[in-house]
């Protein structure tokens, strides 16, 4: 009896909290579907009188170039940094040398720094090598500052591959690269998926580098969304449609590959 009551309470609390958590998506979706005249403060909570996709068309029109920029940025940056992280993780877990752990900790620190503390030199540097205000510049930045987290994830991942596997391969005369290609790589598909999802989401959502390194036609989607939503002059239905468009890719990744997303989240959080 008491158990049933407490279960009931649990459901009530969970449902109440869920409803709170669903306020933003609810408001986002209904606002974005309202025609322009329907968007008024008084009727913010009401369902749209009729479905209207005009705001999506307008938001899409405004954000498309930036959406493409983000794709050009995210895909190469994710792939390169995953590859790099995998190699680093491999070395740091399976080819430990003296001081390797120490170096790993030093690398890891780079994951936590506020990027403000490297921005000023970074911009000067990018400027001097001609990559300022360019997508390749941003790719470079995300690859470099993605090293710590991808290395960490792969290192933790490879720690689960038993050393005996490598040893027997070494017995067979396989060297560093051969082991990587024939043993580690095939075993790290999950690792690659987890890291790729993690990097994809992070780079997609990143703002500070994007807003300081690129301008106008090179800007990724998040900067464009922020510019679009800068004041109430751009109508709310368009802002909300824009926000949904900008959020959709990462949301889809979460919906389709949520399991790996959570694994990445746990792997990226260092072991306590």
């Amino acid at each position: 009896m008491a158990k049933a009551v407490s279960r009931g309470t649990i459901y009530i609390i969970l449902i109440a909290l869920s409803l709170c958590f669903l306020i933003p998506p609810y408001v986002m979706v209904i606002t974005s579907l309202k025609p322009f005249d329907d968007v008024s403060l008084e009727h913010m909570w009401a369902l749209p009188s009729s479905l209207n996709f005009q705001s999506y068309a307008e938001a899409f029109d405004k954000l498309l170039p930036n959406l493409l920029n983000t794709f050009y940025l995210v895909i190469p940056a994710t792939l390169i940094s995953a590859l790099l992280g995998s190699l680093n993780g491999y070395v740091l877990s399976k080819w430990k040398f003296r001081g390797a752990d120490w170096i790993f900790t030093m690398i890891l620190f780079g994951m936590f720094i506020p990027y403000q503390s490297i921005l000023i030199p970074l911009i000067q540097f990018l400027r001097s090598i001609g990559l300022y205000n360019s997508i390749p510049g941003l790719i470079f930045v995300h690859v470099v500052y993605g090293i710590p987290v991808t290395t960490l994830m792969f290192r933790n991942f490879y720690a689960n591959i038993p050393d005996s596997l490598l040893e027997s391969a070494q017995m067979d005369g396989a060297g560093f690269l051969k082991i990587y290609r024939h043993i580690i790589m095939p075993l790290s598909i999950t690792g690659f998926v987890v890291v790729a999802i993690w990097q994809f989401t992070n780079i997609w959502n990143e703002f500070l580098f994007a807003v300081t390194i690129t301008t106008t036609d090179q800007q990724p989607i998040m900067v464009a969304l922020q510019n679009l939503a800068g004041s109430q002059v751009v109508h709310w239905n368009i802002q909300m449609a824009g926000a949904i468009l900008a959020a959709l890719p990462t949301l889809l990744v979460y919906i389709l590959l949520g399991k790996y997303f959570i694994r990445g989240l746990l792997a990226g959080s260092v072991k306590g």
Binding site: M222, L225, A247
Partner: peptide, 13 residues
């Protein structure tokens, strides 16, 4: 699911 969103989207909403 909000974890998958960007702070910018969260802020705007």
């Amino acid at each position: 699911f909000p974890m998958a969103l960007s702070f910018i989207v969260t802020g705007v909403v």
